[in-house]
Amino acid sequence: MGSYVIRRLLGMIPAMLLVSVVAFLFMHLIPGNPAAVRLGPSATTDQIERLTEKMGLNEPIHIQFGRWFARVMQGDLGESIFFQQSVLSVIGSRAETSILLATLGMLVVICVGLPLGVISAVRRNTWIDQASLTVSFLGAGIPDFWLGLLLMLVFAVILGWFPTSGFTSIFAKGGIMNLRYLILPALTLGIPNAALLTRLTRSSMLEVLSLDYVSTAKAKGLPERTVILKHALRNCAIPIITTIAFTLVILMAQAVVTESVFALPGIGRLVISSVLRRDYPVLQGVLLLTAFLYLFVNLLADVAYGLLDPRIRY
């Protein structure tokens, strides 16, 4: 296992190199000039040109890439054009929100999606199954933008149970209680993904429940709970873990809409605003980190397969 993990980690290097080249090229293919954004709409062409030159954005793209890449190799992702701070600190200041939001969203996904999928499969073709099917179709079909605004309207504006927006940090005034700002966003993020997990868990469980060993387990008199949770569910684990792992990355890096709706200072919103501001260094930094996250989570999922399924050996 150890050598497998090392091989995989080494394999990540060419993938990251490829991502860095593609990220850099694509960013610079988008028309638009960050100098013009920084100086505002009334700046003269001459002033924009001067700032562009000062930022080094008028040099040939391979020279810009070379300079950027040399810095990345030293662990320096450069400086944000818009914030005039290091990219790492810009991303770092957003990371707390994204990690907390993804964790809470994941809790919603697992706590809602998994049990609902198992119950649906076990009580197949009953009203419970039908209801869960309807709810999960609705959950997967509702646009997150609309769901977020709906939750905000009901639970924040009308009932006043939660704030509409305004999360800063759990280390700021209010401490852990500040997590209340993240409950509605976590539901917005979690519900559609929980619906998908419900459907996946249900179909995997149905497949397993029809296998002989489950009938054997039942025949030898094991309680139903043990049959389902210990024998059946464990054998569905591989696709479920794959889904959960990638949902986690999606929740962390792609919560763009939810973060915008609830005005959360997360990485998803940083990406969108950086595109609009043409803040290339931040975009490149986020893309690199996201790619790394994907590869790393993929590795974790593969390791988990091996631990859960004794037939899989690396």
């Binding site: 905000m152 924040a156 509409t164 927006s165 915008s260 709706v261 969108i272």
Partner: peptide
């Protein structure tokens, strides 16, 4: 900064 107009109004 609150990017969505709906959120600014709801807030």
């Amino acid at each position: 900064p609150v990017p969505e107009v709906g959120t600014r109004v709801a807030g």
